[in-house]
Design a binder for these strands. Structure first.
Length: 459
DNA sequence: TTTCGTTTCGT
DNA sequence: CGAAACGAA
């Protein structure tokens, strides 16, 4: 009787799950294991929004496994210790998991492999579980480089790759009976979550994907940047927790076809792109990918401005709308992320890490690779070789929220003010402006622009 | 085969 | 500015 452990991390599903399939193919019994990792808590990544979403995911995964005759085993502690303990209890000869990209995930895999070897247990890390294409599977032509630094050539190669076949969910999962498990966490017990937080779980992910492909994706190409249209897939939390397989999402989108599908698959490729950058440069999670020698503003004034940004009261309506959506939903429209990030890093000229951290504190899809590298892209320290792009929040508002509906939704103080004026309320005559209980701009745009250009001129 | 210079282009 | 591709050497 052979037994395997499947360590779940960011892959909380039963469909299209190579580690689970491999374990079932090789062994009679499998222990599906999730460890609430103390190291994740120590790093401050176990935030309410994601803990609540995670609770849904674990409950759903447990239910799916029970429907197949198994169950999910839940532990908490140091991940290596807990896996080793379960391996011992189950007499397992192999452990399967999805390969991860972050420095932490890479170290975890290394430490796990070492610890298990001394117990005579093998570790199998599976590619193309967290991403559609494994980091390092595609490399640029010229020698020396271990990753792509430009998206377009990466997309070309990524698109030409034959996709890994999508694996179905297993019919049966036989789990040894004497392996103890903790109670799964309850979503309702998590405090401090965003009121409009989306539900988690693989079932929800699959319903969302089906609905998206049937009725949402068709207008994605035209409307994905329209803040009020809210025409994005909202699949990001499911991709982050792995309740949805990126391989399956891409495959089913390609089958659905059309320009919307192509634009959506392109976003899945962006996700892989950022993962392969982080896998090759794990330090980029906390340090400039390209040093631009920025002297980010510090001190009292800057801190106050950053606080106004976090609280959605910068006086720039579309920025504030985006920041309030983040607080309320634990999610933000992608266009909102871009303009909010540009505002912090370029207009306020505050350290991108401060903004990235705030996003990770609230985003239900808060993903190290996507979040940190998109922030770096916007801050001009990322892979982009043209570091001086600044998004003007007024122009962004006029362009991506032309009728002001997004601002009206999230900044109700301005609900009575029509576009285009809603994007620059400070230009209202003083008497009229006083009717709206809305702050004046924290900084002047042209002053901010000059300050930024000046700082970049003198490294 | 490998290295180097040139051209193109970048969410 | 600098990555990537490509063709010349």
């Amino acid at each position: 009787m052979k037994t395997a452990v499947v360590l779940y991390t960011s892959d909380l599903r039963v469909h299209d799950h190579p580690p689970l399939r491999a374990a079932l193919a090789a062994c009679d019994r499998v222990v599906p294991l999730f460890v609430r990792d103390r190291a994740v808590e120590r790093a401050g990544f176990a935030v309410p929004n994601r803990l609540a979403f995670l609770a849904d995911c674990l409950a759903d995964l447990d239910a799916s496994l029970r429907g197949r005759g198994g169950r999910l085993v839940l532990r908490s502690g140091e991940v290596v210790d807990e896996v080793c303990a379960v391996v011992r209890e189950a007499g397992a000869g192999e452990v399967h998991l999805a390969a991860g990209v972050s420095g932490y995930a890479q170290a975890r895999e290394r430490r796990l492999r070492e610890a298990l070897r001394s117990q005579g247990c093998a570790l199998h890390a599976h590619d193309a579980v967290v991403t559609a294409v494994a980091p390092g599977a595609l490399l640029p032509g010229g020698r020396g480089s271990d990753h792509f630094a430009v998206f377009t050539p990466y997309l070309r190669r990524w698109s030409a790759l034959p996709p890994r076949p999508v694996a179905g969910a297993p019919r049966a999962v036989r789990v040894p009976e004497d392996i103890g498990s903790e109670e799964p966490p309850r979503r309702s017990r998590v405090t401090g979550t965003s009121p409009g937080l989306a539900p988690g779980g693989e079932g929800e992910a699959r319903r969302l994907l089906t609905r998206w492909l049937r009725s949402g994706i068709a207008r994605y190409e035209d409307a994905h940047d329209d803040l009020a249209a809210d025409a994005t897939s909202r699949l990001s939390p499911h991709l982050h927790f792995g309740t949805l397989s990126p391989v399956e999402a891409a495959e089913r989108a390609r089958t659905a076809g059309g320009p919307g599908a192509e634009a959506f698959v392109r976003q899945l490729c962006w996700r892989d792109f950022h993962h392969q950058v982080l896998a090759a440069r794990p330090a980029a999670a906390a340090r400039d990918y390209r040093a631009r020698h920025d002297r980010w503003r510090t001190g009292r004034a800057a801190e106050e401005e950053v606080l106004a940004w976090k609280e959605g009261r910068t006086g720039y309506p579309v920025v504030d709308a985006a920041m309030r959506q983040l607080r309320h939903e634990g999610w933000m429209h992608n266009r909102g992320r871009l303009l909010a990030a540009s505002f912090l890093a370029k207009t306020l000229y505050a350290d991108w890490r401060t903004g990235a951290r705030h996003f990770l504190d609230l985003l239900v899809d808060g993903d190290l690779a996507n979040n940190q590298l998109n922030w770096q892209w916007m801050a001009g320290t990322g892979t982009d070789t043209r570091p001086n792009r600044v998004l003007n929040p007024v122009r962004q508002g006029l362009r991506y929220d032309p009728d002001g509906r997004y601002v009206h939704r999230w900044v109700p103080e301005l609900a009575g003010l029509a576009a285009p004026r809603v994007h620059e309320p400070w230009r209202l005559p003083a008497a009229e402006r006083a009717r709206y209980d809305y702050p004046a701009p924290v900084v002047d745009l042209s002053e901010a622009q000059a300050r930024f250009q000046e700082a970049r001129r003198h490294p």
